[in-house]
């Protein structure tokens, strides 16, 4: 990778009729970092993310993801990113293995590669016992981990996580963040949206969106200093109250 920034957004906006969901946001995400994209529900996080992953056209502004332009090179972006949404969208009526094979397949991985990777994945997550069970029979926390691993199957340069820990218990959330660390350690950039402020502390840098605008962007430590707060939660409350 020639450049150090894997995401560059400049004055990126999205409007729906009169409503401005995302209002001219600019930021850069460095290779290999865990970038927290914070905001209350409805602040525009998901909309901003959808523009970056090429399933929503920006109304104006510029954005570049892994070296490709979101307007013209969405197809190239898609090959190089992974995505996991809050719904952990696996197919419930397929087994764990079938899901892995399917998602590996749509990213064009070779059958032999899928076989090796799926075995590694199953061993790593300790899923040997349930590999041939339907996903619907698994607890939420497992589905989440599997969905995350599946999203990483094709070795994406960036993984986008849209509120990945919604509805999961604290212990599983903790374990999930360990997986995120490991992924970032292996050189994959992690772009994660969340509204859990405690999770913000785990990120290398965070941006906080309020009403479509990025109101703050820095490391959690510096943000806390800047806003004279003990926790990220306090930072957020101060920002949100304006």
């Amino acid at each position: 990778m020639k450049q150090d920034n894997v995401i560059i957004a400049e004055e990126l906006s999205k409007t729906f009729g009169d409503f401005t969901a995302v209002n001219a946001i600019s930021f850069k995400v460095k290779k290999g970092e865990i970038f927290g994209f914070l905001g209350a529900n409805g602040a525009g996080k998901t909309t901003a993310m959808k523009m970056l992953i090429g399933i929503s056209y920006p109304s104006s502004g510029k954005a570049n993801v892994v070296g490709y332009d979101v307007f013209t090179q969405a197809e190239s972006i898609k090959k190089n990113i992974g995505y996991m949404s809050q719904k952990f969208a696996l197919y419930d009526d397929l087994t764990v293995k079938e899901n892995i094979v399917f998602f590996g397949g749509i990213y064009g991985l070779k059958r032999s590669v899928i076989k090796v990777k799926s075995e590694a994945l199953i061993n790593e997550l300790g899923l040997q016992e349930v590999a041939n069970n339907l996903v619907s029979s698994l607890p939420l926390g497992w589905k989440q981990k599997i969905a995350f691993s599946v999203a990483l199957l094709h070795d994406p340069k960036i993984i986008f996580l849209d509120e990945p820990t919604g509805g999961v218990d604290p212990i599983t959330r903790r374990q999930f963040w360990e997986m995120i660390y490991k992924t970032a350690h292996n050189g994959t950039t992690v772009f994660v949206t969340t509204h859990y402020m405690d999770e913000a502390e785990y990120c290398d840098r965070v941006s906080i969106m309020v009403d479509g605008k990025i109101e703050a962007l820095d490391t959690p430590k510096k943000l806390k200093e800047q806003f004279d707060a003990d926790t990220m939660n306090d930072v957020f409350l101060k920002l949100a109250r304006g």
Binding site: A89, D92, I106, G108
Partner: peptide
């Protein structure tokens, strides 16, 4: 409804 369509659209599948 399940959200898998989103995953499919984010994938390189046309």
């Amino acid at each position: 409804e399940l959200g898998t369509m989103e995953i499919l659209l984010v994938s390189p599948l046309k």
